[in-house]
């Protein structure tokens, strides 16, 4: 199955579950625009997070037996679009923002007891975006995008001159910081936002550049728990086509390729993680959502398209709704 946030033809927001053949299995209404989705087989639940800065997260039953439950952000905190379950499905973690202090937060929710908020950890940075659980089941990796926002000022970016993005590894058991990795100081306006983990537990990330459009910094790289962080060299034409913007990152089923997308540049790129170079470049208007799909990837677009790329045998399909930025694969 696949899951994605969507906007319907009438302009309403929701999330959909699609079967392997792209058949719509279920849809969920959302109070406002959603963003990423996470699912736990152990908990038997999925969660759609509000787009940042948002005030809701909707817990749903992928099997459709129970009605969705809406969580509301606590005072002084906003949801920031992403989250994960603990390995046993008992806890839900969400990226959030303490907007008065401009500090990133991981909100902790008790999935075994009505999703009450039972605690929080810092993300050791500002504007956290995607978070993932490392394969060891013990550490989180969080992308601190570095951008400060505050509800008094909508989505205005308040600190472009002092942005300090980082990738952090955090111990899930006590919230302690295991490592914080930054790119070169000259790249402080390169916001690290989305990630996927390859077969060797390296964290591939995609960035969005907030400096002058005429700069063209590299946008894709990887970090590892042993302290390495590095941008790879994409060929100039591919980099130019990404338009300083990576919207999502996914890893293939075998963990040997990552795919990145740019809805700004209408581009999808699949990268061989060992060769560190593109093995496929394809265009998809407003393409952003990416998920592993048998031998390749499935990609979705803000215009309602779903296509298979890089070896995925799938006929292109058009849906009567617009896909949001992320696509999640849910293994049966």
């Amino acid at each position: 199955m696949f899951a994605s946030s969507v906007q319907t033809a009438s302009g309403r927001y929701g999330a959909v579950l699609l079967g392997e053949r792209g058949d719509v299995i279920a849809s969920i209404d959302l109070p406002d625009r959603g963003h990423d989705i996470t699912v736990s087989r152990e908990a038997g639940r999925g969660v759609v997070f509000a787009r940042q800065p948002g005030t809701f997260a909707v817990v749903f039953d992928p099997a459709g037996r129970e009605a969705p439950v809406t969580l509301t952000s606590v005072e002084g905190r906003h949801f920031f679009g992403h989250g994960v379950f603990s390995p046993n499905g008992n806890l839900l973690y969400a990226t959030e923002s303490d907007f008065e202090a401009a500090q990133g937060i991981i909100g902790i929710y008790d999935a075994s007891d009505g999703y009450g908020r039972v605690g929080e950890f810092p993300t050791y940075g500002t504007g956290p975006h995607e978070m993932l659980l490392m394969p060891d089941g013990i550490h989180f990796v969080v992308a601190n995008g570095g951008i400060e926002t505050h509800p008094d000022y909508g989505r205005a970016e308040l600190n472009l001159q002092t942005m300090d993005p980082s990738v952090v590894f955090i111990d899930r058991r006590d919230g302690s910081l295991m490592g914080q990795l930054r790119l070169d100081a000259g790249l402080h306006q390169l916001s690290i936002r989305h990630m996927a983990i390859d077969a060797r537990s390296r964290v591939w990330f995609g960035c969005q550049y907030k400096g002058a459009p005429s700069d063209s910094p590299q946008l894709v790289g990887y970090a590892s728990m042993d302290g390495a962080i590095e941008l790879i060299e994409l060929p100039p034409e591919t980099l130019a086509d990404l338009r300083n913007y990576v919207g999502s990152v996914a890893v293939s089923t075998d963990g040997n390729r990552v795919a990145v997308s740019s809805p700004e540049g209408n581009l999808l790129v699949a990268i061989d993680v060992e060769g560190r170079r593109p093995v496929l470049v394809e265009t998809l208007r407003s393409g952003c959502g990416l998920a592993a799909d048998d031998k390749g990837f499935v990609a979705t677009s803000g215009e309602g398209e779903m296509v298979g790329i890089a070896g995925a045998s799938r006929e292109p399909q058009h849906f009567p709704f617009l896909f949001d930025n992320h696509m999640l694969r849910i293994d049966a």
Partner: peptide, 11 residues
């Protein structure tokens, strides 16, 4: 112009 809503603004 490309108006797909995932490309209207950053996230």
């Amino acid at each position: 112009l490309s108006v797909g809503f995932s490309s209207l603004d950053g996230d």
